[in-house]
Nucleic acid binder design. Structure first.
Lengths: 367, 367
DNA sequence: CCTACGATTTGGATCAATCCAAAAATCAAT
DNA sequence: ATTGATTTTTGGATTGATCCAAATCGTAGG
């Protein structure tokens, strides 16, 4: 189907181009382009007449074409390893919000914790000429990946976990401090036997938690009790049971994440014990379900939404200034105390179901 | 910084183009292009020599440039309204997996249930010339939106909810049948007072549930008891309490989604009642947490991962054949019976925490 | 009236691929 | 060896924007 000749704008079929608008407004292609990019060079009268033509012809900007010449796609690649995890969901929501404000749009990929899948996606992102990458590295990612990306000249901000050597961009939480807060809180409640469960893989986020745990325990002159396990609900369920059968069972446990804490609470019930009374339980993440469990779970809030926003901000900064100093944004966690570690105040009355704080709350509605 | 002349390939700086490879392999640009697109036209020997040059020069395909000429971006836009909801997380994971297999990549946006935000994103997607859209329409979306997209010549598959008039592409679950399954199950358990709570907005997914409820209840010769509420946990918490205070309280409730069901169970406990014994509770979605609640929640499983895969498949089909007949894929829900509706079998022993079926299971690990 | 000078505007080249009609190379049959 | 039919390869045009150096406009100053 032959396109109509250029000088006759064809509003219905085919796409309207800069050329068409230029003809309609009686100016040149270049001028229209300047108007589109809000350049101050264009005279006010011209600007308005061009705008009118744009509206009249129903023009649609072609970012692909623009990107070809300007080598800026206004596009970012985001890689997470488990988008079904609400924690990442919230983080992605934060990223999305921050990018939206800057007229950026993001590709999302779910690596399923497979370095191969992750690499394939990154290569595809390169082919699409994204301006940068937000990477939450899959378990077992080769540390050289960051240099590879550097070699590609691809700005990359790591999120939550990090690999490779220190001068990199990174946004995450201070897990070390988070665990310390938990320990301090439990000690203040009178606990002396405080165990930590979770984490066998040694990525940055796991190591930080261990550091925090051992340091805080030592600081209080207590003996550490640490169990390496997988990071699943079931692992929590099993770990707590084996701990409680030991000669001197712990009176409190801190879990690598909330899921494990849920499992641990279920494990306690299985033994006929009551979480929060017979053994305190503290989780990490403060997912929305933490407020809803029975009993409500004390948890180290790690603010995924805010981390997502920060990471996006960092990425945009790096894109604007590729050679600026690398930056690390480490948010401070906050301890959200609830009944699972608060025997004293434990009331049989779950008054109203506690709501997470407004900033990160999103109504969990379903279709 | 001036580019080196074309005939001297510059592997290090700047990007290698088709031209460079052509020169290196001693063929023309066109031939290289054909090799890249796996065209059968090229002779085997030529193909190999070109492949060698591609490898040698470290060429990176420029999809943007390709898209400009071929008007196919290998790109899709995905709009959901709450990515922090694990239900959508799982759905997006399904979409991602299906697209990955076909070498497609997707933009993701979170509309936050705002039609304005949604529209802005769709416009941006049009500027990026995505090949198609997967849309889970925000609450209150103008039904004309679908025609608008049609006018844009933009293939669009609706997911989970739908708006506009019937000849459209759609992937979702048969909520009507799901609720019917729940009613039948409860009746089989001897219940005669079965209430339904949830849903004040009248989008397709809500209406379908109502239809299923009223039809099934009438089919059993029972009296309906239906409460319109918001779709939050708190709404479930409050609704159940007001229901239980009525002269003839229900012996079972079906909830619009699992979150509300969790709220309802908490509400029952608040009244000193035991969910599953004093009143059966059934949810919808079968999110992973359903297996973990106390008691474990009976729920209508709606398979978000599979829906995502189907939706992606539909979109790719529509892109390949824009004028083919519109298609609706409606998956059948399955009732996942657990203790919250199974008083007879209720054991005090939560044996091992039940795991969701392998197909849709993803370890909920955290960094 | 002419010249500067700043403010606007412009045309041609360019970005990196694909499309397509036509040319060149290869092979088979006469 | 020539013709005809295939099989491969190719150059030039095209896609829709941006870049940039140069052209044009407007007007204030001499």
């Amino acid at each position: 189907m032959p396109r109509a000749p250029r000088h006759t704008p064809t509003p219905r079929e085919g796409s309207v181009t800069l050329q068409d608008i230029a003809a309609h407004a009686g100016v040149s292609r270049s001028t229209v382009s300047l108007v589109l990019r809000e350049s101050p060079l264009v005279a006010e009268r011209t600007r308005e007449s061009v705008r009118a033509s744009i509206k009249a012809l129903g023009y649609v900007y072609n970012r692909g074409a623009a990107a070809l010449r300007s080598s800026r796609t206004h596009t970012l690649g985001v890689v997470v390893y488990d988008i079904a995890n609400p924690f990442f969901g919230a983080m992605v929501a934060g990223i999305d919000a921050a990018l939206h404000r800057e007229n950026y749009v993001s590709f999302l990929a779910n690596s399923e914790d497979s370095p191969q899948r992750q690499l394939r996606f990154l290569e595809r992102m390169r082919e699409h000429r994204v301006d940068g990458i937000l990477l939450c590295p899959a378990e077992g990612t080769d540390p050289a990946l960051i240099e590879t990306l550097g070699g590609w000249n691809m700005p990359c901000v790591q999120v939550l976990r990090h690999i490779g050597e220190p001068p990199f961009d990174y946004a995450g939480t201070d897990f070390e401090q988070g665990v310390r807060l938990a320990v301090d809180h439990l000690v203040a409640q009178g606990h002396r036997q405080i165990a930590f469960i979770g984490g066998e893989a040694e990525h940055s986020a796991t190591l930080a938690r261990w550091r925090g745990y051992f340091a805080a325990i030592a600081g209080h002159g207590l003996a550490p009790r640490h169990l390496r396990t997988a990071l699943t609900r079931r692992a929590g369920f099993e770990a707590i049971q084996s701990l409680m059968r030991e000669p001197t069972p712990p009176t409190a446990v801190i879990c690598h994440n909330d899921l494990m804490a849920f499992g641990a609470m279920l494990g306690l019930k299985r033994l006929g014990l009551t979480p929060g009374i017979d053994c305190a339980v503290v989780g990490t993440d403060d997912v929305e379900e933490a407020a809803l469990s029975d009993p409500p779970l004390t948890s180290v809030a790690t603010h995924p939404y805010a981390i997502g926003e920060e990471a996006a901000r960092l990425a945009l900064r790096r894109i604007a200034d590729p050679d600026g100093a690398r930056e690390q944004v480490i948010l401070s966690p906050r301890l959200q105390v609830r009944d699972s570690s608060n025997a004293a105040d434990r009331s049989q009355d779950p008054a109203t179901p506690p709501q997470p704080d407004a900033r990160h709350a999103r109504p969990l509605t379903n279709p």
